[in-house]
Nucleic acid binder design. Structure first.
Lengths: 211, 211
DNA sequence: CGTGCCGTTGACAGGCGTCAAGTACAGTGG
DNA sequence: CCACTGTACTTGACGCCTGTCAACGGCACG
């Protein structure tokens, strides 16, 4: 799926910097596309770190809708939870590897986990602003910039997730996402290479949209 | 402002349980209504705890809009930040007292702060779901239930914030908030006592709205 | 009683969701 | 090599929800 990227293209950061004296990390567990990593209601006694691939964290609502709260890529910690049971689901996007630590065996309050929690918190707040106060086209622009940042600020990259995922992340419909991408293309801000390939032609223009 | 509450009414929890061996808490600092506690760009080397009153945390966007990310009441920690400078603003709602700890003098990674960070994170996620996937009336219902919870699950309570604040928290306009409240009243789910007084008549019905 | 602020209500328009049809592309099998 | 199929994505038509603009009502305060 997202393994067929031309070599010259940026991708999401999959290289993990060597951790300094972080013990008790289990070996890499591998997941196929769409496979559940944890689900709502399960005991939350592990914290995960993405090694390669990507992860979506979401909840299903009673009206049948799905809200994706976050995407996680290589190096990101996820699964931190304020209660002892998960209130969200996590699934692999494409072939994905994660490692985890067991919270029973480890002190919960570690600097690495603390800053991971703050990073997650900060990302959630930024996303609140996007879905709260931005129009459809602004949300899509913000999303593209975010994905660019997370693939090392590359101007050209490939989305690892489908339109449905993008829509559920931005609290839009796939049709609106599609239309917004088309508008951005017509305005000369981006170019589309196939369904997943994105090129940011007008980086500054995109940023101006998101103010 | 929110000091003129009839004694029989629930209020937001202002009583602080005695902390067990938590040192270095500065004495209470008092703020008047609307006073800034910290603002975007300042160094974030303090973490605050509400002693009485309430706090709104928000950001102003370029289009002139304001998004309130969270309200904080007695006992809540706020001001935790992943970077060394604040990216948000915090203001007092009504007469408000806070205490803070200095992060320079204290180890950042303490259990109390860690769980505070996770609580903040969790609240941000729940709020993402509300503003992402709920209609106007569902958001208002969810808000009332949240305020009820935070005033000790009382059926009858008084809002400490204005309609503008509610609107900016729910990513709506004041008109839509007002209309939604009227609808909830006409459906017999709530009763309004003045502008700020709320009585939840149909608690279950409200919950069913928010599924 | 006038003034100002806050909240409510109404009329209207626009953006986005919904429904539906059309296109592109990969995989499969003949 | 090509037809067939299914999935993902795009585009179009239309309606509703919510934002915008405006007027009105209630209440505190001077």
């Amino acid at each position: 799926m997202n393994t067929s990227i031309s070599a010259s293209w940026g991708r999401h950061i999959n290289v993990i910097p060597p951790q300094s004296g972080e013990p008790a990390l289990a070996p890499i567990s591998s997941f196929v596309d769409g496979q559940c990593i944890y689900s709502c209601g399960e005991r939350a006694d592990q914290v995960y770190r993405v090694e390669f691939g990507a992860v979506r964290v979401y909840r299903l609502l009673a009206n049948g809708r799905r809200q994706i709260l976050a995407f996680h890529f290589g190096g990101d910690w996820f699964g931190l939870q304020s209660r002892d049971r998960h209130s969200l689901n996590a699934e692999a996007i494409g072939v994905t590897g994660v490692r985890y630590i067991n919270l029973q065996e480890e002190p919960l309050c570690r600097p690495a986990l603390f800053s991971a929690a703050l990073e997650n918190f900060s990302a959630a707040q930024e996303h609140q602003l996007v879905i709260g106060r931005q129009s459809a086209i602004e949300r899509v622009a913000a999303f593209l910039l975010e994905m660019s940042e997370r693939s090392g600020y590359s101007r050209r990259f490939e989305l690892s997730m489908s339109r449905v995922d993008v829509a559920d992340y931005l609290a839009l419909t796939i049709e609106t996402v599609s239309r917004s991408l088309t508008k951005l293309k017509h305005r000369g801000f981006i170019e589309l290479h196939g369904a997943r390939g994105i090129e940011l032609v007008g980086y500054r223009s995109l940023q101006n949209l998101c103010l």
